[in-house]
Nucleic acid binder design. Structure first.
Length: 514
RNA sequence: GGCCCUAUCGUCUAACGGUCAGGACAUCAGAUUUUCAAUCUGGUAAUCAGGGUUCGAUUCCCUGUAGGGUCACCA
């Protein structure tokens, strides 16, 4: 667009505050910043906005870095991090504009704060919080913009000194120019224009050592040479404030792009109240990173054609801000499930098994590189056997956490199901027993207990019946205790002849005794 | 309430001002199957309303309506 821009290095940032678990909206913001930077051979910067000392916690920050790292969104500059070991890098940073934690940038902010005050672009305000608040309430009630009216705007130096001596509580406000329009070009929405009269003199710091968001953000974006600020739509109203601050400090404005919000089913901004919003919950449930990224990127972006499945690298190729939607997008778990299932089916069985093992903690424990022990029975099992039973359910899996409810039948001693389940369509008790006894007889005679042999022999009998289900359904339930499962032949093979026979006998006694 | 943003199937979305308004998820029906999946085939389903501009508006403009965001000594 503007020829001048071509020479500027593209630098984007993700600037979360570590005050809670990472939100799916945060992942998307990070992702879009990452994609835009990488697409343009630029830098992706991670800056931790932890100026709020009360709410910011180190553990949240760690979770944040870990999640970003897990997704493969590597930052060029920011706090150092490694998931490999429990290394605490502390204040070690990547990049030349460190520190990248706002809590460690006090000196920088102080410098600009002094400059703003000295040049009378900011001033001390001694009004009480309560007074300011009630005034805003009043203004709102008469239909005026609820702003600070500027009572302390023109305090003389002497008055300020006097109040300070009295140790009166104060804050530092920005002197917002009156009656001007702040215009900026949003790369997604086009021109946006806001009247300075609607924002008033806003607070930029509690004191010299406690700067606040709009100010620190403006300072850092400028100091860190951020070229494109890509963030959620909820920041549109902060943008004119930051632009004014930037101008007052003598900086160029970056380009802005405000992303549409991610919405809940009620079409409201997705918030913690809506149940699952933290990415950790999705990760724990067994959604794959590639699925999560693929799904999230589609919330507000498309490649311009019908393709929907993309790897991170393909996304870097395809990404463009022009294809970003203006309206908010509802977070629809059903589609996430579909995409996740798709990626799950693409995994090799070895990969899938490794991914599933953590979800089987209740049933098995690792005893060596290649073996596990079934907790309930103490039996040793091999990883190959585990791979086989997992592969039986690969195409049914929507998320990893579901694996245990599919394959628990292999890992527990006694099946627990009701007699009713054994019944196929119109069968009565004696027919069920008869059916199970046929299975028992056939299976007992098979020497080489493979699913192929089992199927072949069982089919010989099943085909004599009106419906194959008459033989196969009771057998399935006897072996699995479930109303849906993988084919019983494969289940039988993996269960082994002994257990298979045991379970059929058990089913017969259930019918006889209940 | 002020200001700002937004508006295509239930959901995510496509459509140089000219398309039978396309695709995907979900849903429904069928095929396949011993069940459940997976897979394949097909169906239902949308341009918020009213005015302009135009030979022709989903598309451009205005008004209305609806929804959302934001108005912290949080970020």
């Amino acid at each position: 667009m503007t020829p001048k821009k071509e020479s500027i290095r593209i630098r984007t940032r993700y600037a979360p505050s570590p005050t809670g678990p990472m939100h799916v909206g945060g992942v998307r913001t990070a992702l879009f910043n990452y994609l835009f930077a990488k697409k343009n051979n630029g830098d992706f910067i991670l800056r931790v906005e932890d100026t709020d000392k009360e709410r910011s916690k180190k553990e949240w920050e760690n979770q944040l870095l870990k999640a970003l790292d897990w997704f493969g969104l590597k930052w060029n500059e920011g706090p150092m991090f490694s998931d490999q070991k429990e290394i605490d890098f502390g204040s070690h940073y990547l990049g030349e504009y460190s520190p990248y934690r706002q809590s460690e940038r006090g000196e920088v902010y102080k410098k600009y704060l002094e400059k703003l005050i000295k040049e009378e672009n900011a001033y001390y305000c001694f009004c009480s919080k309560e007074d300011v608040e009630s005034q805003k309430q009043y203004l709102m009630s008469i239909g005026e913009p609820p702003i600070y009216l500027g009572k302390c705007r023109n305090l003389s130096k002497e008055q300020v000194e006097e109040f300070k001596k009295q140790k009166k509580e104060c804050v530092i406000r920005f002197r917002t120019p009156e009656n001007i329009k702040i215009k900026f070009n949003d790369l997604i929405r086009g021109g946006i224009e806001i009247d300075s009269g609607t924002m008033g003199d806003f607070v930029i710091a509690k004191d010299m050592d406690n700067p606040l968001y709009n100010f620190t953000c403006a300072v850092d974006d400028a100091e860190m040479k951020i070229s494109h600020v890509i963030r959620g739509e909820d920041h549109i109203s902060n943008t004119p404030k930051q632009i004014l601050l930037l101008r007052a400090m003598g900086f160029e404005e970056p380009q802005y792009a405000h992303l549409p919000l991610i919405l809940n089913e009620q079409r409201k901004k997705l918030s913690k109240r809506d149940g699952k919003t933290s990415v950790d919950e999705y990760i724990n449930e067994g959604y794959l990173k590639e699925a999560l990224i693929n799904f999230i990127v589609l919330l507000g972006w498309n490649p311009g054609d019908n393709r929907e499945i993309f790897s991170l690298n393909q996304l870097i190729e395809e990404f463009s801000l022009e294809k970003i939607q203006k309206a908010g997008a509802v977070f629809n778990v059903e589609k996430l499930d579909w995409i996740n299932g798709l990626y799950l089916r693409k995994k090799t069985i070895k990969e899938l098994t490794m991914l599933c093992i953590p979800y089987l903690n209740n049933f098995i424990e690792k005893t060596s590189m290649e073996t596990f022990k079934i907790k309930e029975t103490g039996e040793e099992i091999s990883i190959e056997w585990l791979e086989k039973i997992i592969s039986l359910y690969q195409e049914r899996l929507k998320k990893l956490s579901e694996i245990s409810e599919f394959i628990d039948l292999f890992l527990i001693k006694e099946l627990n199901y009701s007699k009713e389940l054994l019944k196929w369509k119109e069968m009565n008790d004696s027919q069920i027993i008869q059916s199970l006894e046929i299975s028992l007889m056939v299976l007992s005679q098979i020497e080489n207990f493979t699913s192929e042999n089992i199927q072949k022999e069982l089919f010989k009998e099943a085909e004599k019946m009106a419906n194959k289900g008459n033989l196969l359904w009771p057998l399935r339930v006897a072996l699995t205790g479930k109303n849906s499962s993988a084919p019983p032949f494969q289940i039988a093979e993996l269960l082994g002849k002994e257990k298979t026979i045991q379970r059929i006998k058990k089913a017969i006694t259930i019918i006889e005794h209940e």
